[in-house]
């Protein structure tokens, strides 16, 4: 267990190192250097002297190696510099917006997990009936719907036609309804598809039939012999969708003008606000990797077989 933890933490550090090198050089290779962007934001003319001034100010006049060392030293202290647009520290800017987005992410994730687990177990219990077929078809349909279509349709009907919910912004609980539905509908549908496969696999296992042959109570049978073996695969699926959910959230935030991280990042990206983009990337990578790591630890705790599977691929 400790070895695994240490290995994964080392892996995270190594990954961040690679990522930082990649981003550092990408910013320098791409057309439009940081100095230009700053000058454009300040509204000054792009003259020779000002560029040199900013270069010394940013420390960009030394060698690339020195620049990287200095830059990465600051990155380790979570000092991502100041935003070109607002001249405020990047970390503060990001942190002030993160709560709005996190609420959206957690709400939609929780709703879609609960709903999809219930629906997929329901479908598996009624296997071979029309209900199961319809659940399958609807989930395929919903999971291939693009988020913006769902979002636009919801806005069209609920906000414009029926005037039930506000069109955009945030504040009251009414504002949460449409974004959360938009995010969780396709997510829930794809969960249902994958979960149903997982449950059918578990039902096929001999130990489930053996448990039935033992005459175990319904509650014990379904919780210990059906749900417990599913949890491992469920969590893996959820973890793999957790990352892409953030992409979905960005689209949703732009649709509903949600004042969260997503719309801020899109804004920063279009304005070429390099410190914000870099800070966001590194923090996001660290955050997601830590989440994956925690899920892996949890899986190990739940499923004792996992420790055995480690050495499967060998040289």
């Amino acid at each position: 267990m400790w070895r695994f933890t240490l290995k994964r933490l080392l892996n995270i550090i190594l990954t961040l190192f690679f990522l930082s090198i990649f981003i550092f050089f990408l910013v320098r290779v791409t057309p439009g250097t940081p100095e230009m962007v700053i000058l454009l934001n300040r509204g000054g003319e792009i003259g020779g002297e000002e560029v040199v001034d900013i270069k010394t100010e940013l420390g960009h006049d030394t060698s690339l190696y020195n620049q990287y060392v200095n830059w990465s030293k600051r990155m380790i202290r979570f000092d991502f510099g100041v935003s070109y647009q607002s001249n405020l520290p990047v970390l503060d800017e990001l942190l002030s917006r993160v709560s709005d987005t996190l609420i959206l992410v957690i709400l939609s994730l929780a709703i879609s997990i609960i709903l999809s687990v219930i629906i997929s177990f329901y479908a598996c219990i009624y296997k071979g009936t029309m209900r199961e077929k319809w659940i399958g078809n609807i989930s395929i349909f919903l999971s291939s719907l693009p988020n913006y279509l769902i979002g636009l349709l919801l806005v069209l009907f609920f906000s414009i036609h029926w005037k039930v919910t506000p069109v955009y912004g945030d504040g009251t609980w009414l504002h949460y309804i449409l974004p959360v539905i938009t995010a969780s509908l396709p997510l829930c549908a794809s969960f249902v598809q994958l979960f149903r496969q997982i449950i059918t696999e578990v039902i096929k296992n001999l130990y489930f039939e053996a448990a039935r042959a033992m005459g175990l109570k319904k509650r014990v049978l379904y919780t210990k012999f059906l749900f417990l073996p599913c949890i491992h695969s469920f969590l893996t699926v959820i973890a793999s969708h957790f990352g892409s959910l953030w992409g979905t959230i960005i689209v949703i935030e732009t649709i509903y003008a949600w004042p969260g991280l997503g719309s801020y990042i899109i804004h920063a990206v279009t304005a070429r606000d390099y410190p914000v983009v870099i800070g966001f990337t590194l923090i996001m990578a660290l955050f997601l990797m830590l989440i994956y790591f925690l899920i892996d630890l949890l899986l190990r705790y739940i499923d004792p077989r996992q420790t055995q599977k480690d050495g499967q691929i060998k040289w």
């Binding site: 005459g215 175990l216 073996p229």
Partner: peptide
Amino acid sequence: EWRKIRGKKIGFIYQQPSLALHPML
């Protein structure tokens, strides 16, 4: 009704015992 009979009145032993036991308990 089966649940009262299985295990209680009729026991069952499988051909592949290693697969018939729950691997996570």
